[in-house]
């Protein structure tokens, strides 16, 4: 069998296994983010949001939708890859991959695309839930697809890198708790940069997630605090950097081969 078709079979095997895991563990992978998002829509959108005036010319509930979708893309893609890869390491089933001729590219693609798959499933459900609260149309579907898929790719890669270095279960939660969640909440999910004081603006502007949230907000609503093309470029560059890091770590066997 040709090497390329053999590698495709290897990649598809890993991808199918990882996506099957997403469905099999749906009470852990799909349901919790849907419940959390529904609560956000209910409390911040309907109960509190009705008392908040429009933000950048749109109702607060609608302003919040892209931010919540981006939040779920980031957390779900990251967690899916990080937990799955770490558990495979923990129970040593990762050796099934290491002894086989599956390429490092196939391993990265297999895990990353499964992370993208989960985050897209969750995001789709969140969009459907949001539409039951408020009616809207998408401003730019191409940007919407690009921002959501590329963000999922980026955070899947970050999850993979974290799992490669992780030695105990606590290590996979540290980044979520102390980095991703604070950066996401402070990344403009619930507010526009115009609404905060100039002293805080600096911290918002150095937060990379702020650009992702605004990119997706532009795709949804046609409004943004940043230049969308620039955000997309940074996103692509970040993917290139983190992909290269993942590949190098796997090739050297860091955290995998003593």
């Amino acid at each position: 069998m040709q090497n390329k078709s053999r590698q495709f079979v290897s990649f598809m095997t890993l991808f199918k296994k990882e996506t099957y895991r997403v469905f099999k563990l749906w009470p852990q992978t799909i349901l919790p983010p849907l419940i959390t998002s529904s609560l956000y829509f209910l409390i911040f959108g309907t109960v509190i949001g009705s008392r908040i005036k429009e933000v950048q010319g749109v109702p607060f509930l609608l302003f919040m939708v892209p931010g919540l979708v981006m939040m779920s893309v980031i957390i779900n893609s990251y967690m899916n890859v990080c937990s799955s890869f770490f558990i495979a390491k923990f129970q040593k089933s990762i050796e099934e991959l290491l002894v086989s001729p599956i390429s490092y590219h196939s391993i990265i693609f297999g895990y990353t695309l499964a992370g993208v798959f989960r985050s897209m499933c969750v995001s789709l459900f969140i969009v459907l839930i949001s539409k039951s609260f408020i009616s809207y149309d998408f401003h730019n579907l191409v940007y919407l697809t690009l921002f959501s898929v590329l963000t999922a790719v980026l955070f899947s890669l970050i999850g993979l890198i974290n799992a490669i270095f992780a030695v105990k279960f606590d290590d996979i939660n540290i980044v979520t708790t102390f980095v991703l969640t604070p950066l996401t909440y402070l990344g403009g999910v619930f507010y526009s940069i115009d609404q905060i004081s100039s002293s805080w603006k600096f911290f918002v502007l150095i937060n990379p997630i702020f650009y992702l949230v605004n990119g997706l907000r532009y795709s949804f609503l046609g409004i943004s605090d940043v230049a969308v093309g620039q955000a997309l470029l940074v996103l692509c560059f970040s993917i290139f950097v983190f992909y290269s890091i993942s590949y190098t770590l796997l090739k050297k066997g860091v955290g995998l081969r003593p």
């Binding site: 069998m1 095997t13 040593k92 099934e96 086989s100």
Partner: peptide
């Protein structure tokens, strides 16, 4: 040491391993 995913079915473990070899 046992190094397979204990939550997978026997047939899946074997088919996946064959798949990793192409």
């Amino acid at each position: 040491e046992f190094n397979f995913n204990i939550f997978e079915r026997v047939q899946h473990i074997l088919e996946n391993q064959a798949g990793y070899y192409g």
